[in-house]
Design a protein around this nucleic acid. Sequence first.
DNA 1: AAATAGAACAAACATTTGTTTGAAACAAAC
DNA 2: GTTTGTTTCAAACAAATGTTTGTTCTATTT
Lengths: 213, 213
Amino acid sequence: MTTADETRQRLLDAAGPLFAEQGLKATTVRVICDRADMNLAAINYHFRDKKQLYHEAVRHAAHCCDARVPIPDWPAGTPPERKLRDFVAMFLNRVAVDHEPAWHAQLLMRELTHPTPACAEFVRDFVRPCFEALSGVLRELLPDVPELKRRLVAFSIVGQCLHYRVARPVIEHLVGAGEFRNYGVDLLAGHITEFSLAAIDRLAARSHRKGPS
Amino acid sequence: MTTADETRQRLLDAAGPLFAEQGLKATTVRVICDRADMNLAAINYHFRDKKQLYHEAVRHAAHCCDARVPIPDWPAGTPPERKLRDFVAMFLNRVAVDHEPAWHAQLLMRELTHPTPACAEFVRDFVRPCFEALSGVLRELLPDVPELKRRLVAFSIVGQCLHYRVARPVIEHLVGAGEFRNYGVDLLAGHITEFSLAAIDRLAARSHRKGPS
DNA sequence: AAATAGAACAAACATTTGTTTGAAACAAAC
DNA sequence: GTTTGTTTCAAACAAATGTTTGTTCTATTT
């Protein structure tokens, strides 16, 4: 039965942007159904209730995000500097830049900053694999650095990337919408990679001077 | 009349944590008044309506944040590296670490990520002065770097700091609440300053090699 | 063609929500 | 002690909200 799945999709596509912008509680089922051109009872029929629809929207967003911008799988021998650049570009493509539909990344950011019960699954299936990939690259770049320090480096990198999504409205307000339009993925990825590699190089040099443990 | 101001404060203190955690729409006036041990009509009497109370809560949070952790005013001749370290520590103290009451920083972060009509004032009085202070320091550290590039460096720095507030729930989930407790202001400020100064040094060297414009 | 199961729909339901109202309590000024 | 202006309070109001219900429509099966 394809019609039921289509309806579910229509509801998800209508609810997604609203959930992403206003959150679960502030979004009403009436507005969702209006936008989806569906009857008011559709949500309770096709999903159990509003909460369940929200949960499925998060799952759907994570799945699409993952499928569209997969975590790179590098051939053996790829230099770790190259891997870092790829990772940053991938990460920016996931969260910072607006693909259509834009609500996927927005809803995931909401889950990051204001977790709901859907967050545990979101971290397990979406955040952690991403974080592990970066940790692997950093283990290559900073083999002799303690685990705690390496984590801080990882957070420095994802923090730089996420900032352009998380604080986007304020950044636009700050530098003007005109300049913000120049912040494409290539520019940002180039800057963040360069910035981070410089710092990593110095850390590596220092830890090497102190000697590998 | 001190009693009216006290009542306003009681309402603000009760509403603040709720607004910070759930946002304007998801927080009900009944819960606020319950927590403040006040009559249901108190909000509409002392503030015009719920929106106004929210707006005042943001204003109050920004004011307290500013007063408790002021932007440093360095004596002439302070080395810019030292200024950067001070700025990072100040910024982390403002947003990353929990002072009591914790809702001040949380509510401001909500305004950052999900702006309301209160945002314009928030950016003008709170965000921009902070950003200008950092820009000044960076002009000293990177005098020969184009404005755009310097802005990206600024965002890299505040992005690193903000990440520990914005993504705190997920970071805790990721590294465990035990390790997260180690992330004190000193540790984070040290790391972020070191990380950023390394990158800045390389940028300065490169721009100097190309020659000042 | 009749029967059946899945989907859509309008209407209604019980709560919840922000706000208003008019009276009561209170404190200060005359 | 009365008056005046301010603050508190219980009750009520209208609008909005998530969910349920019983019916109608539709397409597939028998």
